[in-house]
Nucleic acid binder design. Structure first.
Length: 479
RNA sequence: CGGGGCGUGGCGCAGUCUGGUAGCGCGCUUGCCUUGGGCGCAAGAGGUCCCCGGUUCGAAUCCGGGCGCCCCGACCA
């Protein structure tokens, strides 16, 4: 229940975010350091994200599977850069059933190793390939500093894992999944993203190439919102995942992995939310439309509720996720604010005057206040609402895209670059040297987010060292 | 591990400098009233003031030690 106004988003973004997550009842911290409890409303959002992604995974031939939570420590040690990357953040089980274990078990930080171990047994022939799997699970990474949804000790995600006969096919899979994440972000979450390649310094521990979709949050900072890794033959060699090709030669597989986590919920909050609270993108919103009845007398109540229930049934039949707020003892104004905080894209106000006219008031969440209100006939309401939800989606996307454009600069020199990454992104040529990247990070705290795939081409000189460069990179401060 | 802040009814806080009966707002309970933008009025319940020790006639307040949380860095794909 909202008691006080939220902190202003522009004044204290971090405080606004924390309060919003808790007050809108999305999630809370568990009595375990850094662990998150996702509440029903937050989980409903996650389920919609799951469905949107799962639909795309199934359409491209992937199947869901389940692998163990506990992984023998030695598995992690098998891939050199994997162990280097993950060792510092592992949770390790050393005692089981009261006995010290002969070999410690790690709580999975990700599942490449145990999946690789099993694949080595399952994959024998080129006829077994490709293997296309996905797993919905949670993983544990012992982070020093946590933030609800964005970086928690345990987080929920999907991790896809595939094995292929050729480099080309695996690379194509990696890119396909990046495209799927991009499509999901744009068309379901209304979040513009930049799909691109990560630098060596930022890539996944064990990957040959890492791609990501990068989004700009409402404070100008970047959030890596999904990743897709081309693992080359690194894990295939470490776990001896081999197949006999058509000519009878033993070959190592080429593997990929890709993931998108509950962190994406953080992105939705930080991209669309405002001083009134959450703004849910219509396609993912747990509740797409809420009907708030307004009445004084018992007679009015009966008439309004009867009409409201009919309207609700009609909308539900049309496939719209709709709720009728029949709570007693709270005023309509209170309900308005309550649903606004929870980000419901469309509110339908229905009072005695509306019933008489067989109409209602539609209030758009993306335009709070009077200008977001219109009258609509109850007749044909489902079509009106469906169309309006589509418009709201588009307007949210356009607004976020506009914001990103405004806050992405093309600095002419390093001084301008420093200014640009203070409040947004810099799109600059970069020579590709880790050295320049490291110095930029040290001096500005901005990191190379990605080298966007959709480059017009051209050439320039590195924003830091001035050497010739062939591609632009996006730099910014990141969550 | 550095730098800053905080710990007082369920939640948010004031009170601490300058020691003297434990306060406020919200929420909660009961009753009346209200419902087109977070209703109003009245009565009521609810607190080891983070912990331990010290100073004092007397400590939420002063002193010493400890614990916990938050923010900013380091870390984190």
């Amino acid at each position: 229940m909202p008691e006080e106004k939220l902190p202003s988003r522009s004044e204290d973004f971090s405080e606004w975010y924390n309060q919003l997550v808790v007050r809108a009842q999305l999630a809370d911290y568990a009595p375990v350091r850094g662990c998150m409890v996702v509440r029903p409303y937050g989980w409903a959002l996650w389920e919609n994200i799951q469905q949107a992604l799962d639909r795309r995974f199934k359409a491209t031939g992937h199947q869901n599977v389940a692998f163990p939570l506990l992984i023998p420590r030695s598995f992690i040690d098998k891939e050199k850069s994997h162990v280097e990357g993950f060792s510092p953040e592992l949770a390790v089980v050393t005692i089981g059933g009261g006995e010290e274990l002969a070999e410690p078990l790690v709580v999975r930080p990700t599942s490449e190793t145990i999946i690789g171990h099993m694949w080595a047994k399952w994959i024998q022939s080129h006829r077994d390939l490709p293997v296309l799997m996905n797993q919905w699970n949670s993983v544990v990474r012992w982070e020093l500093r946590t933030k609800l949804f964005l970086r928690t000790l345990e987080f929920y995600w999907q991790e896809g894992h595939t094995a292929h006969a050729t480099r080309e096919e695996a690379e194509s899979e990696t890119r396909q999944m990046l495209d799927i994440y991009t499509d999901f972000a744009v068309n379901d979450a209304a979040i513009p993203v930049s799909p691109g390649r990560k630098s060596d310094a930022e890539k996944f521990a064990g990957a040959e190439t890492t791609y990501s979709i990068e989004a700009m949050m409402g404070d100008g900072k970047a959030l890596q919102s999904g990743t897709s890794h081309f693992l080359g033959q690194n894990f295939a060699r470490a776990f001896e995942i081999q197949y006999l090709d058509a000519s009878g030669q033993l070959q190592h597989c080429w593997t990929t992995s890709w993931g998108l986590s509950t962190r994406f919920i953080g992105a939705i909050i930080m991209v669309h939310g405002d001083d009134q609270g959450l703004v849910m993108p219509p396609k993912l919103a747990p509740v797409q439309a809420v009907i708030v009845p307004i009445f004084k007398t018992d007679a009015e109540k009966a008439a309004v509720l009867e009409t409201a229930r009919k309207a609700k049934a009609g909308l539900a039949d049309a496939g719209i996720r709709v709720t009728l707020d029949e709570r007693d003892g709270v005023s309509p104004g209170w309900k308005f604010n309550d649903w606004e905080m929870r980000g419901v894209p469309l509110r339908i106000e229905l009072g005695p005057r509306d019933v008489a006219k067989q109409s209602c008031v539609l209030a758009r969440r993306d335009r709070p206040g009077k200008e977001g209100k219109t009258f609509a006939a109850l007749d044909g309401l489902s079509q009106t609402v469906a169309q309006l939800l589509g418009e709201i989606h588009q307007s949210l996307y356009n607004r976020a895209l506009e914001f990103r454009k405004t806050n992405t600069k093309d600095p002419a020199n390093y001084d301008e670059f420093k200014v640009a990454v203070e409040s947004g992104f810099a799109s600059s040529f970069w020579c590709g040297a880790s050295d320049c990247e490291a110095k930029i990070k040290e001096e500005t705290r901005a990191t190379m987010r990605c080298i966007p795939l959709d480059q017009a081409g051209g050439a320039g000189s590195c924003i830091f060292c001035g050497k010739p460069a062939t591609a632009r990179a996006i730099f910014g401060k990141a969550y």
